[in-house]
Design a protein around this nucleic acid. Structure first.
Length: 217
DNA sequence: ATCCCGAGGG
DNA sequence: CCCTCTGGAT
Protein backbone atom coordinates (compact mmCIF):
# COMPACT_ATOMS: atom_id res chain seq x y z
CA UNK A 1 0.00 0.00 0.00
CA UNK A 2 1.37 3.39 -0.92
CA UNK A 3 1.21 6.47 1.27
CA UNK A 4 -1.21 8.10 -1.16
CA UNK A 5 -3.77 5.39 -0.49
CA UNK A 6 -3.77 6.01 3.23
CA UNK A 7 -6.89 8.00 4.02
CA UNK A 8 -7.95 9.83 7.12
CA UNK A 9 -10.77 7.41 7.84
CA UNK A 10 -8.46 4.43 7.39
CA UNK A 11 -6.08 5.98 9.90
CA UNK A 12 -8.92 6.74 12.29
CA UNK A 13 -10.10 3.14 12.28
CA UNK A 14 -6.57 1.89 12.88
CA UNK A 15 -6.21 4.37 15.70
CA UNK A 16 -9.41 3.12 17.30
CA UNK A 17 -8.14 -0.45 17.16
CA UNK A 18 -4.91 0.59 18.85
CA UNK A 19 -6.83 2.57 21.44
CA UNK A 20 -8.87 -0.49 22.35
CA UNK A 21 -5.67 -2.51 22.66
CA UNK A 22 -3.97 0.06 24.88
CA UNK A 23 -6.77 1.67 26.91
CA UNK A 24 -4.27 3.06 29.42
CA UNK A 25 -2.81 5.18 26.63
CA UNK A 26 -5.78 7.51 26.45
CA UNK A 27 -5.49 10.94 28.00
CA UNK A 28 -8.04 11.26 30.78
CA UNK A 29 -7.31 14.66 32.24
CA UNK A 30 -10.47 16.43 33.34
CA UNK A 31 -10.71 20.15 32.73
CA UNK A 32 -13.18 22.84 31.68
CA UNK A 33 -10.86 25.45 30.26
CA UNK A 34 -7.34 25.96 28.89
CA UNK A 35 -6.02 27.16 32.23
CA UNK A 36 -7.15 24.03 34.04
CA UNK A 37 -5.83 21.83 31.27
CA UNK A 38 -2.46 23.57 31.47
CA UNK A 39 -2.26 22.98 35.22
CA UNK A 40 -3.39 19.37 34.90
CA UNK A 41 -0.89 18.71 32.13
CA UNK A 42 2.00 20.17 34.09
CA UNK A 43 1.01 17.95 37.01
CA UNK A 44 0.80 14.87 34.81
CA UNK A 45 4.55 14.60 34.25
CA UNK A 46 5.68 11.15 35.38
CA UNK A 47 2.31 10.55 36.98
CA UNK A 48 -0.98 8.96 35.94
CA UNK A 49 -4.01 10.99 34.92
CA UNK A 50 -6.03 9.33 37.67
CA UNK A 51 -3.81 10.79 40.36
CA UNK A 52 -3.81 14.20 38.70
CA UNK A 53 -7.61 14.18 38.61
CA UNK A 54 -7.64 13.45 42.32
CA UNK A 55 -5.77 16.63 43.24
CA UNK A 56 -6.94 19.19 40.65
CA UNK A 57 -10.48 19.68 42.05
CA UNK A 58 -9.01 20.60 45.42
CA UNK A 59 -6.42 22.85 43.83
CA UNK A 60 -8.97 24.69 41.66
CA UNK A 61 -11.31 25.13 44.57
CA UNK A 62 -8.59 26.76 46.62
CA UNK A 63 -7.07 28.77 43.75
CA UNK A 64 -9.75 29.74 41.29
CA UNK A 65 -7.69 31.44 38.62
CA UNK A 66 -4.12 32.32 37.61
CA UNK A 67 -4.29 35.50 39.68
CA UNK A 68 -4.89 33.68 42.97
CA UNK A 69 -2.39 30.92 42.24
CA UNK A 70 0.23 33.49 41.30
CA UNK A 71 0.40 34.71 44.90
CA UNK A 72 -0.08 31.34 46.57
CA UNK A 73 2.13 30.01 49.30
CA UNK A 74 4.40 27.42 47.70
CA UNK A 75 4.32 25.04 50.65
CA UNK A 76 0.53 25.00 50.60
CA UNK A 77 0.55 24.15 46.90
CA UNK A 78 3.19 21.48 47.49
CA UNK A 79 0.98 19.80 50.04
CA UNK A 80 -2.02 19.83 47.74
CA UNK A 81 -0.14 18.20 44.87
CA UNK A 82 2.28 16.02 46.83
CA UNK A 83 0.91 12.72 45.54
CA UNK A 84 1.66 13.59 41.92
CA UNK A 85 5.41 13.43 42.47
CA UNK A 86 8.09 16.07 41.77
CA UNK A 87 5.91 18.25 43.95
CA UNK A 88 8.47 20.91 44.76
CA UNK A 89 9.30 21.58 41.11
CA UNK A 90 5.68 21.39 40.10
CA UNK A 91 4.48 23.77 42.81
CA UNK A 92 7.15 26.31 41.94
CA UNK A 93 6.38 25.99 38.22
CA UNK A 94 2.63 26.23 38.74
CA UNK A 95 2.99 29.44 40.70
CA UNK A 96 5.54 30.79 38.22
CA UNK A 97 3.26 29.91 35.35
CA UNK A 98 0.32 31.68 36.93
CA UNK A 99 2.48 34.72 37.58
CA UNK A 100 3.68 34.78 33.97
CA UNK A 101 0.10 34.57 32.69
CA UNK A 102 -0.90 37.49 34.90
CA UNK A 103 2.15 39.50 33.98
CA UNK A 104 2.53 38.83 30.26
CA UNK A 105 -0.64 37.23 28.94
CA UNK A 106 -3.60 39.13 30.40
CA UNK A 107 -4.50 36.15 32.59
CA UNK A 108 -5.16 33.81 29.67
CA UNK A 109 -3.28 30.84 28.29
CA UNK A 110 -1.39 31.82 25.12
CA UNK A 111 -2.08 29.94 21.90
CA UNK A 112 1.44 30.00 20.47
CA UNK A 113 3.92 27.17 20.93
CA UNK A 114 6.84 29.46 21.74
CA UNK A 115 4.85 31.46 24.29
CA UNK A 116 3.73 28.26 26.02
CA UNK A 117 7.20 26.76 26.11
CA UNK A 118 8.50 29.97 27.65
CA UNK A 119 6.29 29.34 30.70
CA UNK A 120 8.00 27.63 33.63
CA UNK A 121 7.39 23.90 33.71
CA UNK A 122 6.03 23.83 30.18
CA UNK A 123 8.07 21.94 27.59
CA UNK A 124 7.28 20.77 24.06
CA UNK A 125 5.08 17.95 25.21
CA UNK A 126 2.90 19.93 27.60
CA UNK A 127 2.64 22.77 25.10
CA UNK A 128 1.42 20.47 22.34
CA UNK A 129 -1.14 18.83 24.60
CA UNK A 130 -2.57 22.23 25.51
CA UNK A 131 -2.56 23.49 21.92
CA UNK A 132 -4.22 20.36 20.60
CA UNK A 133 -6.71 19.63 23.35
CA UNK A 134 -7.68 23.14 24.41
CA UNK A 135 -7.39 25.07 21.16
CA UNK A 136 -7.54 22.38 18.47
CA UNK A 137 -4.24 23.57 17.03
CA UNK A 138 -2.29 20.76 15.32
CA UNK A 139 0.99 19.57 16.76
CA UNK A 140 2.53 16.58 18.51
CA UNK A 141 5.85 15.51 19.88
CA UNK A 142 7.40 12.91 17.61
CA UNK A 143 9.88 10.63 19.36
CA UNK A 144 11.57 7.54 17.96
CA UNK A 145 8.56 5.32 18.71
CA UNK A 146 6.09 7.61 16.98
CA UNK A 147 8.35 8.06 13.96
CA UNK A 148 9.07 4.38 13.49
CA UNK A 149 5.49 3.17 13.97
CA UNK A 150 4.06 5.88 11.73
CA UNK A 151 6.52 4.99 8.97
CA UNK A 152 5.84 1.27 9.27
CA UNK A 153 2.10 1.86 9.09
CA UNK A 154 2.65 4.00 6.02
CA UNK A 155 1.33 7.13 7.69
CA UNK A 156 4.54 9.05 7.21
CA UNK A 157 7.66 8.85 5.09
CA UNK A 158 9.78 11.67 6.49
CA UNK A 159 13.00 10.82 8.29
CA UNK A 160 13.10 13.76 10.66
CA UNK A 161 10.76 14.15 13.65
CA UNK A 162 9.65 17.53 12.27
CA UNK A 163 8.82 15.99 8.90
CA UNK A 164 6.83 13.19 10.50
CA UNK A 165 5.00 15.68 12.67
CA UNK A 166 3.97 17.69 9.66
CA UNK A 167 2.78 14.64 7.72
CA UNK A 168 0.83 13.24 10.65
CA UNK A 169 -0.85 16.54 11.46
CA UNK A 170 -2.07 16.76 7.88
CA UNK A 171 -3.29 13.19 7.87
CA UNK A 172 -5.03 13.11 11.24
CA UNK A 173 -8.49 14.45 11.97
CA UNK A 174 -8.86 17.47 14.22
CA UNK A 175 -8.27 16.88 17.90
CA UNK A 176 -6.55 13.51 17.61
CA UNK A 177 -2.95 14.65 17.59
CA UNK A 178 -1.84 14.12 21.15
CA UNK A 179 -3.89 10.96 21.49
CA UNK A 180 -2.22 9.57 18.39
CA UNK A 181 1.27 10.30 19.60
CA UNK A 182 0.51 8.59 22.86
CA UNK A 183 -1.05 5.46 21.46
CA UNK A 184 1.78 5.07 18.92
CA UNK A 185 4.30 5.32 21.75
CA UNK A 186 2.53 2.49 23.59
CA UNK A 187 2.32 0.37 20.47
CA UNK A 188 5.96 1.05 19.64
CA UNK A 189 7.13 0.07 23.10
CA UNK A 190 5.01 -3.00 23.57
CA UNK A 191 4.60 -4.51 20.11
CA UNK A 192 6.05 -2.65 17.14
CA UNK A 193 9.54 -2.49 18.59
CA UNK A 194 12.60 -1.20 16.79
CA UNK A 195 14.70 -4.36 16.71
CA UNK A 196 12.19 -7.14 17.22
CA UNK A 197 8.73 -6.40 15.95
CA UNK A 198 6.01 -8.69 17.17
CA UNK A 199 3.78 -8.78 14.12
CA UNK A 200 2.06 -12.04 15.01
CA UNK A 201 0.57 -10.35 18.06
CA UNK A 202 -0.12 -6.99 16.43
CA UNK A 203 -3.71 -5.71 16.65
CA UNK A 204 -3.36 -3.92 13.32
CA UNK A 205 -1.29 -6.36 11.22
CA UNK A 206 -3.86 -6.49 8.47
CA UNK A 207 -3.59 -2.72 8.03
CA UNK A 208 0.20 -2.64 7.99
CA UNK A 209 2.01 -2.30 4.65
CA UNK A 210 5.24 -3.57 6.18
CA UNK A 211 4.30 -6.70 8.10
CA UNK A 212 7.39 -8.67 8.99
CA UNK A 213 9.93 -5.86 8.79
CA UNK A 214 13.04 -6.55 10.77
CA UNK A 215 13.51 -9.42 13.14
CA UNK A 216 10.35 -11.03 14.50
CA UNK A 217 9.68 -12.11 18.01
C1' DA B 1 14.21 -2.87 42.44
C1' DT B 2 12.66 -0.62 38.47
C1' DC B 3 9.91 2.01 35.51
C1' DC B 4 7.01 6.25 34.24
C1' DC B 5 2.53 10.04 28.90
C1' DG B 6 8.40 15.51 31.51
C1' DA B 7 11.24 19.65 32.25
C1' DG B 8 15.31 22.09 33.40
C1' DG B 9 19.94 22.47 34.05
C1' DG B 10 24.99 21.28 33.55
C1' DC C 1 24.08 13.93 26.12
C1' DC C 2 23.58 13.17 31.04
C1' DC C 3 21.64 13.98 35.42
C1' DT C 4 18.11 15.26 38.92
C1' DC C 5 13.69 15.91 40.87
C1' DT C 6 9.41 12.52 43.49
C1' DG C 7 5.61 9.31 44.46
C1' DG C 8 3.20 5.44 43.14
C1' DA C 9 2.42 1.23 40.43
C1' DT C 10 4.10 -3.21 39.31
Amino acid sequence: MKISRITSSHVLTTLDLLQVTYPEASCALTHQNPWQLLVATILSAQCTDVRVNLVTPVLFKRFLDPASLAVADQVEVENLIRSTGFFRNKAKNLIGCAAALVRFHKNVVPQELTALIALPGVGRKTANVVLGNAFDIPGMVVDTHVGRVARRLGWATARTPEGVEEQLCKLLPSGRWTQTAHVLIFHGRQCCRAQTAWCSACPVVDRCPQVGVGRQK
